[in-house]
């Protein structure tokens, strides 16, 4: 028998704690497959963040540290500088990365720290029950924007790709979705490029994954899957935003 599809080595056997239909599991698998393909598991130190991704350390089968809310890029900066031979990645949600940890994100990117960030954007605070995030879409209803997000009242969303693209430090920036096998293939390519950027010492790399949160969006998993494509991806267009030419070489 030839195994065509099975669990990557870089994941532990622990069942995910996420809600039914949550895209965290899809993202975990793609990150783990990328670690497997590039033989990075034994060199890797993964940095978990606060939010639903707080359990990342239980799921990735490599050394891990759990950072305080928003501080994963600072922790990763130090781990990479402490152990330059290690492969260092963070796994952060949008509340963590784009709100409380904005300073750490922007400065790690500006410095061009040689780390890789997996950024899960589900347009809300998942763990605490679906509050408004910096990335919450215009008109989107959350438990703290019950009337729908309105610029005059709740302020405008933050587009991390546009922000990060203003800096010199990043070597690779890409936004992806995981809603079909084809789009997952593109996402995987982005994650591999981000990881190679670090392996080549090119500096900061980040992949933003538009991700469904069916429980807090009050949708079925299938409705949430389509919402990512039909609504979220319209506002936050997927695609590579920054590709240093050395990323593609060799």
């Amino acid at each position: 028998m030839a195994v065509l599809f099975s669990r990557p080595q870089s994941l532990t056997d622990t069942p995910f704690r996420y809600c039914p239909g949550c895209h965290h599991g899809l993202a975990h698998r793609l990150v783990a497959e990328a670690l497997d393909e590039l033989n990075l598991r034994e060199k890797a130190v993964g940095i978990a963040s606060v939010g639903c991704s707080v359990y990342t350390n239980e799921f990735f089968n490599c050394d891990t540290q759990q950072a305080a809310h928003g501080r994963a890029p600072a922790v990763a900066t130090a781990v990479k500088r402490a152990r330059p031979e290690c492969f260092v990645f963070t796994y952060q949600g949008d509340g963590d990365l784009a709100s409380i940890g904005m300073a750490e994100t922007i400065h790690a990117a500006a410095r061009g720290e040689n780390i890789s960030i997996i950024f899960i954007n589900n347009a809300c605070y998942g763990m605490t029950g679906g509050q408004m995030a910096p990335t919450t879409l215009p008109e989107q209803k959350t438990t703290t924007s019950p009337l729908g997000r309105e610029a005059a009242r709740e302020g405008n969303p933050v587009d991390m790709m546009k922000l990060l693209d203003a800096l010199e430090g990043p070597a690779y920036l890409s936004r992806v979705v995981l809603t079909s096998p084809g789009k997952q293939a593109a996402a995987k390519k982005s994650i591999l490029r981000a990881f190679r950027a670090q392996m080549k010492g090119l500096g900061f790399s980040l992949v933003e994954i538009l991700s469904a949160c069916p429980s807090n969006w009050r949708m079925t998993p299938v409705e949430a899957l389509h919402y990512v494509d039909e609504v979220m991806a319209k506002y936050y267009p997927p695609g590579e935003v920054r590709v240093a030419k050395e990323v593609l070489e060799g």
Binding site: I47, Q65, A68, A78
Partner: peptide, 8 residues
């Protein structure tokens, strides 16, 4: 938090 990372 950098101290945390390096100490870890």
């Amino acid at each position: 938090n950098m101290v945390y990372g390096a100490a870890g």
